[in-house]
Nucleic acid binder design. Sequence first.
DNA 1: ATTGAAAATGAAAACGTTTACACAGAGGGT
DNA 2: ACCCTCTGTGTAAACGTTTTCATTTTCAAT
Lengths: 344, 344
Amino acid sequence: MSEKIATIEDVARHAGVSIATVSRALHKPDVVSETTREKVQTAITATGYTANVMARNLRLNRSGMILLLVPDIGNPFFSAILSGIEKGASQAGYNVLIGDTQNDPEREATYAAYLRSNQADAMILLNGRLPASLANAPANATPPVVVACERIPGCALPTVIIDNDEASFIANRHLTDLGHRRIAHVSGPSGNILTIDRVTGYRRALEAAGIAHDPSLIYRGDFSIDSGIAAGRALLGDPKTRPTAVSCASDGMAIGVIVAAKEYGLRIPQDVSVVGFDDIPHAAAYDPPITTVRQPRRRLGEQAITLLLDRLGSKGLHDSRDTGPVIIPTELIVRQSSGPCPTL
Amino acid sequence: MSEKIATIEDVARHAGVSIATVSRALHKPDVVSETTREKVQTAITATGYTANVMARNLRLNRSGMILLLVPDIGNPFFSAILSGIEKGASQAGYNVLIGDTQNDPEREATYAAYLRSNQADAMILLNGRLPASLANAPANATPPVVVACERIPGCALPTVIIDNDEASFIANRHLTDLGHRRIAHVSGPSGNILTIDRVTGYRRALEAAGIAHDPSLIYRGDFSIDSGIAAGRALLGDPKTRPTAVSCASDGMAIGVIVAAKEYGLRIPQDVSVVGFDDIPHAAAYDPPITTVRQPRRRLGEQAITLLLDRLGSKGLHDSRDTGPVIIPTELIVRQSSGPCPTL
DNA sequence: ATTGAAAATGAAAACGTTTACACAGAGGGT
DNA sequence: ACCCTCTGTGTAAACGTTTTCATTTTCAAT
């Protein structure tokens, strides 16, 4: 009595037609006669038939799966991006398989192999590193891969990013505009392209204001709250060398810097201004609300999947002559963690 | 010159053996002779062969996919749970397909159909609702489904949860122990089982302290920061009726309540104590650091996948006589948002 | 009636695997 | 020499679809 699952053959037998007709009734209804279509329809409901997707995919040589490589699902930063991608993908009939790479190149390679083994039709990279198997792709037929979130230097794949350099420039210019001249920067981990671009923007802004670069004012964090606390303690401990403003490469680190500042009894923004990056939901609810660069993460995800679907839609030869990356605009959100430079 | 992908047949031809032997060399190495194994091995590297997973899955009638239904990927609350599940699944050779249901029963049904159509071997429910197709499953052979995060009343499926009632009881007893007698509760949306259980714990704690229940002290939120702000404004506006403590069903709402309290110039915890729920990373870095119930989310995910893999491992008949849900212990983390009841 | 095109259907090949079955050769015991 | 067991391999059948191609049916125009 073990409920065997119905196959297309069961439907065919039940409807008194061939399996080919059943298949056609489902996928090319216009080519099959009204009456048979109905017979098939009733047979389907009678048997409770659901097409075996794997068999179909084998035949069609596709998987209906889009592979999404993220460095860490646990990081809420990616949540909204995922959400945007998932929405677009499911509208187009694709499923999104999320691969958590933990920044491990081996895991990245494992997942990238899914493309070859037909487990995925396409891939979106959120982790800013190109799996080795893609690195030496022929230039005239790029694989169906889109890079999002972090640009990969020297990589011709379609890319969607924000202009980190410019966004950081604007955030730091906001501080120089407020009269600050001793401005520290808490960056991301070294090697990270985000880190590099945001440091560049920071330095450009200071230079534009005629401020000499002081390497001791750059603290290397890792985007986490804890590293922000460490940065704050390191930068704000000595009243003699203390900057009057700190720009951070993430909101989490900005929060950490503020926590450390409060430990020293410093008031934000009267004694020290702090700006963050990303505009996570908690930035607005913090005390004080944090001035930050809003990064439209959902939009970024949507753009990425749009780019990919375009790519998949137009089957055929694909030139890697890239039209340049798609740039999602950012916005400086001024809240109360930044204010005029205190007069000494 | 379009790089055709190598099949098992290419390997066989290249190695001068049959495809059966190639397959065996890969999956049952002990049954094939040393020399042929080597020949096959070199042939594989020579051709760059990767097995077509879809063909294998069709043959084996499995998908290697575990479907994970979440109400909203965009919600960082789930991030750590996902992460725990993903870890366990990938160790066992499964992939995790995340289905974002947006709390839409139709989408839930769509995804649940994946089980029938062989797109997924098993399912984990994080959304606290049983898709209709599973509701009337035969009692002696439950489908390979595990419920996590929210228990589903009257559902015999394997379940892993925290004891929300008891956790909420302990959080609120913490407040009564501090001498508070007028304690408000900011709950989740109505109908939600988490809401119900946490309200129950709240009421039990007050009752245990001999405090009469006052329905006007329960405010219905939706777990978000904004709803917490609204709750705070509603509860703390009138000095005459103001509670001295507020317990919240999420950390986000606790943050919102604190934001509102500060608007009224109230000090935390001198004027009003606030406790949260979940222990999200931001709870510890808030000002003041928030007393809350730590929910080991990663552990919860790990338990869920463990349960599921057990279930998958022991193929055969499965009795739905449930051994009762697995309960993950919680922990009250006392920080500085809660303190003694102010003497009037 | 006959023809011929158009419409509807069925038979069978393919997609790339795994595996049940059969079979050949190699020893080892009588 | 014979039989018997092992070991290693190949043949071919499945898995459930989609689709090409050929065939049948329909039906309007002669």
